[in-house]
């Protein structure tokens, strides 16, 4: 019973939403927007659970003085501060909330993003080795694209930038599309398997 009900809900809703996709009638659209509203409500409830988990995890860490517990104080204080500032002083364009967002949060995010350059360099150095014929071909392609896209690539050969672009447009695009077609089928199959109840791993596997 514990599994039958979720499977039945999944099957009914999956089939109903699939049928809805093919019906442009206002009743069908109205139904779709009702479901979307339900989803928003569901998300809001899930957020309460999630925040509860965050508070619980960090409170325990502080109480038990676990390793690096002071960071948990930072997390909880920041979360409470942003919530209080946003609730009581608003989130308009020039509010304190927005200023904190733009002057603290945005630069911190940008810093994390910027680390990508460092990681790319070290990962490329470690991994780009001509271990096999395929790896050598990939290495050569990467080399041509990197040099071709640099401003002075044209001085090495005037045809290099065009060749680099050709690699991006054709072999690279062909490979990407091959993967995308496979992914699309995988996604459709996964959706159908869940709707039809063939896939039950999310319910703990086979009964």
């Amino acid at each position: 019973m514990k599994r039958t009900i979720p499977l039945a809900i999944c099957l009914i809703m999956g089939v109903v939403m699939m049928i809805q996709f093919f019906i442009p009638h206002p009743i069908s659209l109205e139904f779709n927007s009702t479901i979307l509203n339900w989803i928003i409500v569901l998300f809001a409830f899930a957020l309460v659970l999630a925040i509860g988990n965050l508070i619980r995890h960090h409170s325990i860490k502080i109480r038990k003085r676990k390793h690096d517990w002071p960071y948990s104080i930072v997390t909880l204080t920041s979360m409470a501060a942003m919530a209080i500032i946003g609730l009581f002083w608003g989130i308009e364009a020039d509010s304190l909330f927005q200023r904190i967002y733009l002057n603290i949060f945005a630069p911190l995010s940008a810093t994390m993003f910027a680390l990508l350059a460092y990681y790319m360099a070290s990962a490329a150095y470690r991994a780009f080795r001509a271990r096999s014929l395929e790896a050598t071909l990939l290495l050569a392609a990467a080399f041509i694209v990197m040099v071709g896209f640099m401003p002075f690539g044209q001085y090495i050969s005037p045809r290099l930038p065009a060749f680099a672009e050709w690699i991006m447009r054709y072999p690279n695009m062909a490979a990407q599309r091959g993967i995308i077609i496979g992914v699309a089928f995988g996604a459709i199959a996964t959706a159908l398997k869940i709707i039809l109840g063939i896939e039950r791993s999310w319910l703990g596997g086979k009964e």
Partner: peptide, 9 residues
Amino acid sequence: IIVFIVLGN
């Protein structure tokens, strides 16, 4: 990065 990749190889 190219120099490092070449050195590594």
